[in-house]
Design a protein around this nucleic acid. Structure first.
Length: 868
RNA sequence: GCCUGGGUGGCGGAACAGGUAGACGCAAGGGACUUAAAAUCCCUUGGGGCAUAGUCCCCGUACGAGUUCGAUUCUCGUCCCAGGCACCA
C-alpha cells in the first residue's frame, strides 16, 4: 500500500467501483427487511453548499450503517426542480429556465458523486420532467373530481411592477423583495386544496409520531391552531340581520359589551348604511383595504376601530351593545366577528378603555373582589361566575358547558371548532411550474383535461417577461384549446402549481421512478414506504412536512397507499455557521479576503482591521461561506464528511472551523500510518476473535477496548445518531493502538497473538468508520487483503460480552458525597469488601476522623459513599 | 406576549438511568526526532491555595433556593440566548 494517504487518487477510484458494481442500487425484496432513508431533495441552484454536504453526509452514514446491519436500503436522490429562481436567472442570463435547471442538475450531480454518497442514482428524478408532473396533474384531476380542490377568489400579495403574486415571505417590510415597490392586496382567483378537511386528523396524529422532534410537532400543532368553543348568534337591533360570532369563551357571554366585525365583513357596510357613521366607516374600511397585510401587522400594536352606528342584542342579557369594526379583527378566522368581553380578554380590554366602553366582570377569582378583578387588565383565568343571572356562583368551566347546552336548546348557537390553518392556495402566476390541468369553457365552465391528453406540457418557446409575470397567459398556442366536453373553443388554465405540490409526493415516486402507467407502482410503494428516516432542515418544519402528511392522506383516501404518515422518523439537522468578517471600507468579506496578523484580523484589500462578528448561519449576503469544492480538493471528501459529523451532533448547529477540518485529516493520516507500519504483520495473521481469557496483560486491554468501542459506537448511532461521540470512541481506540505500541508491542517484536489482536482492533476501527469515511476504509480494507470493493457490504461488527469489561474496576470513595479516594478492585468484590477497603484508605479515615459513621452506601462496580 | 429548545474550560463539544464533571478534538505550552523547518511521536493544560507539592485542600456545569447520602442531571423561582408563532376571538 501507498505510504502516503492521498484522497485525490483513492476517492474517485472507489466511486467508480461502486458505480460499476451498482453497489447502492436497491430492489424490492419481500424476503428482506427494508430501510428507506431519505434526505430532503435539493433545489438545483447550481452548486451545493456546505449545508447540503452536512445533510447528505448524515443521511449517507445512516444509509451505509443500515446496509451493514443487513437491511435492504433505499437511498435515492433527485431534484426539486421547479421554482422562481430559474425564471429570474433565465431573464438575467438570457437562457431558458429548462436549460438553466438541467445544467445545474448536471453540475450538482457531479458534486454529490464526488462526495461518495451511496445513492441509487438509477432512481434519480427531477420534478420539472413532464414524466413526473404528468402524475401530479393526474392526481389534481382526481382530487377535483372528489371535491378536494376548488377555485375561489381571495386576497393575495400583489406586486404591480412585477405583475405577480408574492408569497408572504417574499414581502419585506411591505415592499416587493425584488423591485422594492409597495405590495398591495389584490383579489385574485386561484386554486385551493382542501387541507382543512384533514386539520383534525393531522393534529391528532401529531401525538402518534414519536420519531419526530417535539419542536416540529409543536410548530405543526400551532399552525393548525385548533380552538374549541361556540358559535353564537347576536341579532342586530331593528334589522333582520344576525351576527354570528365564534368564541372560545362562551362562559363570558354575560360580559360581552360590544361587538367587533372585521373590516372586510359584509355586514360592516350594510349596517352602517344610513347611519351618521356611514362616512367614517367607509373611510376606515377603504383605508384598511389599501393597506397591505404586512402594514397592518406592523402597526398592529395600536388597536383602532370605528362604531358602525348599529347595535345588536346580547342574547342572554337582552342588552343592546354597540357594533364596531376594528383593525384587529380578521375576516379569515372564525366568522370574522368577535364578541368582545373586555373584562376577560386583554385585547378587548385595551379597545374598551380606548373607546370608553363598559367593562363588566363575570368571572371572579378567589383572591380578588369583583371591583379589583378587571381594574388594570383583563382577567383570563378561571373562577366563580358573577353578574351572570342564573349562572352566578357556578364555576366557569361548568358554566361553559351549561351555556353551550342552553344555546343549543334555544337555537342561539352551537358548539363549534375553529382552525387557524387555511386551505392551501396552490396557484402561481408563474411560468416555471407544473401547469394546472384545467380548461375554461364558456358553456361547460371548468373542465378537467382528459387523462389521455396528460401531461399538459409546459411550452418551451415562451418569451419570459422582464417583469416576471406569467408568459403562459399570452402564449396563444398554449391557451387556445377546445373544450374536452363540448368541443367549442376554450381557454386553458395558465396558473402553475406551487412547488410544494411536487415535493409532497416525490418520496413515493422514488419507489418506482420509471413507472409510466401510474403515479407509482402500488406494490413497490407498499414495500418501501413509509420512509423510515427522513432528514432535512427545520425550515421545512411546517409547510413541506405538513403538506406531505396531507398529500399522503389524500392518496390513502384514494386507495393508492395504505398508510397515513409518510415519515416514521424525522431528524432536523442544525445549520452550518461561521463568524462574519466585516471591513469598514469593503463591507462583509469572504474568508479568503481577510488575513490574520497575530491576534487581529485585517482586510487584504485595504489593510484595515476587520471586525469579527458573531457566529451566524452561512449565507452569501454575509459572505461567511465555505466552498465544499475547495475543501474536497484540499482534504478529500472523507475528511469533509468526517468533520461535518464530528464537530457537533446532527440536530445542533455546527460551527465551521478550518482547524477542526485539519484535525479530521490528521486523524485519518494517523490511522493510515499505523496501518502501513503493521501491514506486513496484518497480512500474516487473522483478527483475534476468541474469548479474552488467555490474553496476556500487555495486549488484553486493547482487546477489551476494541469490544467496548463496538458497543459504544453502535449505541451512539442507534439511540440518537450521535456520530460525534461515535467518532470520539474510534479515536480512543486508535489512541489505544498507539499506546500498545509505546508499551512495547511493535510490528517488529509483537508475538502472533498480539499482532492478531492488533489486526482485530484495526479491522474494527475500519468497520466502524466505514459509513463515515467510505473511500478511506475501502482502500485500507483492500490493503489488508480483503476483496477490493467489499467494504460497503461488510457486516456491522458485533461485540463479545465477555470482552466488554476488565476484571478489575476503579471504585470511587466518597465521604458525605465528596470524592476522597479511589481504588482498583476485582469486579466481583462484594459490598462488604468494598466497604472494608474504602474504610482502610488513609484519606478517607482522615475525613471521617472521630465522627460516627451513620450509613455506608455502595453501588456495585462504582462507588462507596460514607455518611458521617 | 405565548410556545419550543438551550446556557458546562480559551474554543467545538462529552458525561448512557441521580453516582469520578470536562471524554474526544481544536488551540496553547513543554519535550523527543531533525543541521534546520515541516510533519510525526510523547507529556501538560477549569480556577485558586499550600508550612507537608500530594493518593492533598477549596471553588466550579447561567443565578438563587429545594429534594437526596450524593444534583450538570430532578423540582420551584430568576436572568440571558436562539428558533417558531404573533391581535386567531
Amino acid at each position: 500500500m501507498d505510504q502516503r494517504y492521498d484522497p485525490q487518487t483513492i476517492e474517485p477510484k472507489w466511486q467508480q467501483v461502486w458505480e460499476k458494481t451498482r453497489a447502492f442500487c436497491a430492489d424490492a425484496d419481500a424476503s428482506r427487511e427494508k430501510y428507506y432513508l431519505l434526505e430532503m431533495f435539493p433545489y438545483p441552484s447550481g452548486r451545493i453548499h456546505i449545508g447540503h454536504v452536512r445533510n447528505y453526509t448524515i443521511g449517507d452514514v445512516v444509509a451505509r450503517y443500515k446496509r451493514m446491519c443487513g437491511y435492504n436500503v433505499l437511498h435515492p436522490m433527485g431534484w426539486d426542480a421547479f421554482g422562481m429562481p430559474a425564471e429570474n436567472a433565465a431573464i438575467a442570463n438570457k437562457t431558458h429556465p429548462a436549460q438553466w435547471t438541467w445544467d445545474n442538475i448536471a453540475a450538482m450531480r457531479k458534486q454529490l458523486k464526488r462526495l461518495g454518497l451511496s445513492y441509487d442514482w438509477e432512481r434519480e428524478l427531477a420534478t420539472c420532467d413532464p414524466k413526473y408532473y404528468k402524475w401530479e396533474q393526474w392526481l389534481f384531476i382526481r382530487m377535483y373530481e372528489k371535491g378536494m380542490v376548488y377555485r375561489k377568489e381571495s386576497l393575495v400579495n400583489w406586486c404591480e411592477t412585477c405583475s405577480t403574486v408574492l408569497a408572504n415571505e417574499q414581502v419585506e417590510n411591505g415592499e416587493c423583495w425584488r423591485c422594492g415597490r409597495p405590495v398591495k392586496q389584490k383579489k385574485l382567483w386561484g386554486w385551493f386544496f382542501k387541507i382543512t378537511d384533514y386539520a383534525d386528523d393531522l393534529l391528532e396524529y401529531c401525538e402518534k409520531l414519536p420519531g419526530w422532534p417535539e419542536k416540529v410537532l409543536t410548530m405543526q400543532k400551532n399552525w393548525i391552531g385548533k380552538s374549541t368553543g361556540a358559535e353564537i348568534r347576536f341579532p342586530v337591533s331593528g334589522k333582520d340581520e344576525v351576527i354570528n360570532v365564534f368564541t372560545t369563551r362562551p362562559d363570558t357571554i354575560y360580559g360581552a359589551t360590544y361587538m367587533v366585525l372585521a373590516p372586510e365583513h359584509p355586514l360592516v357596510r350594510t349596517l352602517s348604511r344610513g347611519t351618521g357613521q356611514q362616512e367614517a366607516v367607509d373611510a376606515f374600511v377603504d383605508r384598511m383595504a389599501a393597506e397591505s397585510r404586512t402594514d397592518r401587522m406592523l402597526e398592529a400594536k395600536e388597536k383602532e376601530g370605528v362604531f358602525l352606528g348599529a347595535w345588536c342584542t346580547n342574547p342572554v342579557t337582552g342588552t343592546q351593545i354597540p357594533v364596531y369594526t376594528a383593525n384587529f379583527a380578521l375576516m379569515g378566522y372564525g366568522t370574522g366577528a368577535v364578541m368582545s368581553v373586555p373584562a376577560h380578554d386583554q385585547r378587548d380590554y385595551e379597545f374598551a378603555k380606548k373607546y370608553g366602553i363598559d367593562i363588566i366582570v363575570v368571572i371572579k377569582p378567589e383572591e380578588l373582589s369583583v371591583e379589583e378583578t378587571a381594574a388594570t387588565q383583563a382577567y383570563t383565568g378561571d373562577g366563580a361566575m358573577v353578574n351572570s343571572g342564573p349562572f352566578d356562583g357556578m364555576h366557569n368551566r361548568k358554566a361553559y358547558e351549561d351555556l353551550i347546552a342552553y344555546f343549543e336548546k334555544h337555537g342561539l348557537g352551537k358548539r363549534s371548532i375553529s382552525y387557524r390553518i387555511r386551505d392551501w392556495g396552490i396557484s402561481r402566476q408563474r411560468y416555471w411550474g407544473a401547469p394546472v390541468p384545467m380548461i375554461h369553457c364558456d358553456t361547460c365552465g371548468i373542465v378537467p383535461v382528459k387523462d389521455a391528453d396528460l401531461p399538459v406540457v409546459l411550452p418551451e418557446n415562451v418569451d419570459l417577461l422582464d417583469g416576471g409575470g406569467s408568459p403562459l397567459a399570452s402564449h396563444q398556442a398554449f391557451v387556445n384549446v377546445t373544450c374536452p366536453k363540448c368541443g367549442a373553443a376554450a381557454r386553458r388554465e395558465t396558473d402553475t402549481m406551487d412547488t410544494f405540490v411536487e415535493s409532497s409526493w416525490y418520496f413515493e415516486r422514488y419507489c418506482s421512478p420509471h413507472c409510466d402507467t401510474a403515479m407509482f407502482d402500488k406494490k413497490e410503494v407498499a414495500y418501501w414506504m413509509p420512509v423510515d428516516q427522513y432528514i432535512g432542515g427545520v425550515e421545512h418544519a411546517v409547510m413541506h412536512l405538513l403538506y406531505s402528511r396531507y398529500f399522503t392522506r389524500v392518496l390513502k383516501d384514494m386507495g393508492l397507499v395504505d398508510f397515513k404518515e409518510p415519515f416514521t422518523r424525522l431528524l432536523t439537522q442544525g445549520m452550518v455557521c461561521k463568524e462574519t468578517q466585516h471591513c469598514p471600507e469593503h463591507g462583509f468579506l469572504y474568508p479568503e479576503e481577510a488575513g490574520a496578523r497575530g491576534e487581529s484580523v485585517f482586510c487584504k484589500k485595504c489593510g484595515q482591521p476587520v471586525e469579527v462578528g458573531r457566529v451566524e448561519k452561512m449565507s452569501k449576503s454575509k459572505k461567511n461561506i465555505i466552498d465544499p469544492n475547495e475543501l474536497v480538493a484540499r482534504y478529500g471528501a472523507d475528511t469533509v464528511r468526517l468533520f461535518c459529523l464530528f464537530a457537533a451532533p446532527p440536530e445542533r448547529d455546527l460551527e465551521w472551523s478550518e482547524q477542526g477540518v485539519e484535525g479530521g485529516f490528521r486523524f485519518l493520516n494517523r490511522i493510515w500510518r499505523l496501518a502501513s507500519a503493521w501491514m506486513v504483520r496484518f497480512r500474516q495473521t487473522r483478527a483475534f476473535t476468541d474469548a479474552p481469557d488467555d490474553l496476556d496483560e500487555k495486549i488484553r486491554p486493547l482487546y477489551i477496548k476494541t469490544h467496548q468501542t463496538i458497543k459504544k459506537v453502535t449505541d451512539d448511532i442507534e439511540a440518537r445518531f450521535h456520530f460525534n461521540t461515535a467518532i470520539s470512541a474510534v479515536m480512543e481506540l486508535v489512541n489505544a493502538m498507539y499506546q500498545a505500541e509505546t508499551r512495547g508491542i511493535s510490528p517488529e517484536t509483537a508475538d502472533d497473538t498480539a499482532a492478531a489482536v492488533m489486526r482485530g482492533a484495526m479491522e474494527t476501527a475500519l468497520l466502524l468508520l466505514a459509513p463515515v469515511v467510505p473511500h478511506f476504509t475501502e482502500e485500507l480494507w483492500a490493503a489488508i487483503g480483503y476483496e477490493p470493493g467489499s467494504m460497503a457490504n461488510q457486516s456491522w461488527p458485533a461485540w463479545r460480552t465477555d470482552a466488554l469489561s476488565a476484571d478489575t474496576r476503579v471504585i470511587v470513595v466518597q465521604v458525605n458525597g465528596k470524592l476522597r479516594a479511589k481504588f482498583e478492585i476485582n469486579a466481583e468484590a462484594d459490598d462488604e469488601t468494598l466497604k472494608a477497603r474504602a474504610l482502610e484508605d488513609e484519606n478517607v479515615t482522615r475525613f471521617i476522623a472521630d465522627k460516627p459513621v451513620k450509613k455506608v452506601i455502595t453501588v456495585k462496580h462504582k462507588l462507596v459513599n460514607i455518611v458521617v
